[in-house]
Nucleic acid binder design. Structure first.
Lengths: 333, 333
DNA sequence: TTGTATGCGTTATCAT
DNA sequence: ATGATAACGCATACAA
């Protein structure tokens, strides 16, 4: 079943059938209807490979994310897929894990599949060492590369980020102003985004004239139970803190569990702020005060930016979305 | 940059280059190495479209799920993608939403992309009306269709499910034996899986000789806060219940919040059991006793079954995985 | 408005 | 073991 079958049955040439398929104006409406009728009758579908061979595109976007079961990434993937489809693009999904070499391989693989663009979701794609980001630059030489929550200045790389630095800075200031003088910052990755948050926290301490000892920030595992244990042991070792700002909601939930175990009243004696405003925030008891980074907006913006890029428009390389502090029970700010 | 460039530079014909690419045995090792060297030097990558045109496949599997941000589905998608890739297949992701016509369209779209098989994740793809499942049967006439958590008896449709009926049946029995004589079942969808769970609950009540009035099961929204409200209003209307079995963890969390608001002690006065053993389970306070449906096993089994099908093996149409009750704080069973 | 002929980059068949 | 050449199904430049 191919274009020849249709053309034969419709009594026209394959060129005409092709024109109908591609909505060319140069077809008489009578011919068009005849052809459409035959296509319908035969249940004809153009062969995407033959089509791709000529056009060298299959209207497909490669999406890479480290782990699509992470709630933030899962949401992003969902919104991306939906919006890409609205624009007539399909999505090739790649869950790369967190290892550099794997990411590099998968990116090459996507390119070899002739995707029209690549979207990298999550700041974990940005490596600390500059040369380790070369693979993204190489990719950008072939197709547009979109970064969600990461920033890399290079032609044909377009970044959409939420202002993590500012969000944590502002949130920390509000914690301090609310009377929590010894906030502790927890994070669980050295990604671009995590480091931004970290800076925001440190700068807020400085700006408030509070001491910012090394112990006021702590790297930990992205796990509720382990976070609780960590906090217990920190407390056991004499560290004093009256609030926890988690770089992820899961860390914040761990802090809530810690407070409960220690018999600390939330939010009177102990405050907790999370990040992402995920389902965990409303699951927690009390519910988490958390920063919403507007995943949906982030995703929609990325797609619309990409569409403009593919349309040949001139587009800014960096778009920043502001976050929002959602106040709930763990911190009345 | 194509196969001709390579053949020219290597001083062989394109046929030989093609043989090298495809690992044909009929190439002298000397020639092979020469060609490989040239390919490496030129950074040559075969054109997937031309390849697809000849082979009529691109080693791609279509994955459909209603909403990749649902934790259960997100996990499944993640494991599927990983395992498919291990087997040399790429994944086309489609988030279809819950509307029938949309699902039908997306399935057709995947077929038109010439995927080698389709995996439908989640029992929400099975409609109550038999004729509404015809679209899957149509698809099965073209490529293997894999169902995760759904059952449809038809050639070329392969189902992998966890035994939801048995899991809920057993769990309910254990609740009753532990002394909770008035369990309430909450569910939030009419999917195949949800109905299985419902039957399990009802049968457990009967088997225990307990009355099973219509009010002992309740359809509600998949939302923590709304579930809590619903339970409060049920209680207000005089319904008596001392345990809640939620068809999803989120419903169970809602029940925990309800108990807290009512001042009921968990698990002494009030027990809660969830389903999926998701992150919500350990986030909740107390942590949820929940049924683990082994998403990873489910996904791995699906992929390995698919590989056997694609390999031309004879494969059973239905594989059932048993679940496991994970006991935590909300019900000491 | 319509048809003819060619190219797209492979794989596969057939010779050699 | 290797090479020449015909599909594969479509889009498109060009001709009519």
């Amino acid at each position: 079943m191919n274009i020849y079958d249709v053309s034969e049955k419709a009594g026209v040439s394959i060129a005409t059938v092709s024109r109908v398929i591609n909505g060319s104006a140069n077809v008489s409406s009578k011919t068009r209807e005849k052809v459409l009728a035959v296509m319908e009758e035969l249940g004809y579908t153009p062969n995407v490979f033959a089509r791709g061979l000529g056009l060298n595109t299959m209207n497909t976007i490669g999406i890479m994310c480290a782990d699509s079961s992470d709630p933030f990434l899962a949401n992003a993937v969902y919104y991306l897929e939906q919006n890409l489809r609205k624009n007539g693009y399909d999505s090739f999904l790649c869950c790369t894990g967190y290892e550099l070499s794997t990411k590099q391989n998968y990116l090459k693989l996507l390119l070899s599949k002739r995707v029209d663009a690549i979207i990298l979701v999550g700041s974990n794609f940005l490596e600390a060492a500059k040369k380790d980001n070369q693979y993204m630059i190489d990719a950008a030489n072939e197709v547009p590369v979109m970064l969600i929550n990461g920033y890399l200045a290079h032609p044909n790389i377009y970044c959409t980020l939420c202002d993590d630095y500012q969000a944590v800075y502002d949130g920390t200031i509000r914690l301090i102003e609310a009377g929590y003088r010894r906030p502790l910052f927890l994070y669980c990755s050295r990604s671009y985004s995590a480091l931004q948050k970290l800076s925001g926290f440190r700068d807020a301490l400085s700006a408030s004239g509070l001491p910012a000892p090394e112990e006021s920030v702590c790297l930990c595992a992205n796990d509720i139970a382990q976070t609780k244990e960590l906090l217990c042991s920190l407390k056991g070792r004499g560290l004093v803190f009256d609030a926890v700002f988690g770089a992820e909601d899961s860390l914040a939930v761990g802090a809530v569990k810690y407070a409960r175990e220690q018999g600390l009243r939330i939010p009177e004696e102990f405050a907790v702020v999370g990040y992402n405003n995920s389902m965990l925030a409303v699951c927690s008891e009390p519910e988490l005060t958390s920063i919403d980074n507007h995943v949906e907006t982030l995703s929609i913006t990325t797609v619309s930016t990409l569409m403009r890029v593919l349309g040949g428009n001139d587009v800014p390389n960096k778009t920043t979305i502001s976050n929002e502090l959602v106040v709930r029970g763990t911190a009345r700010l």
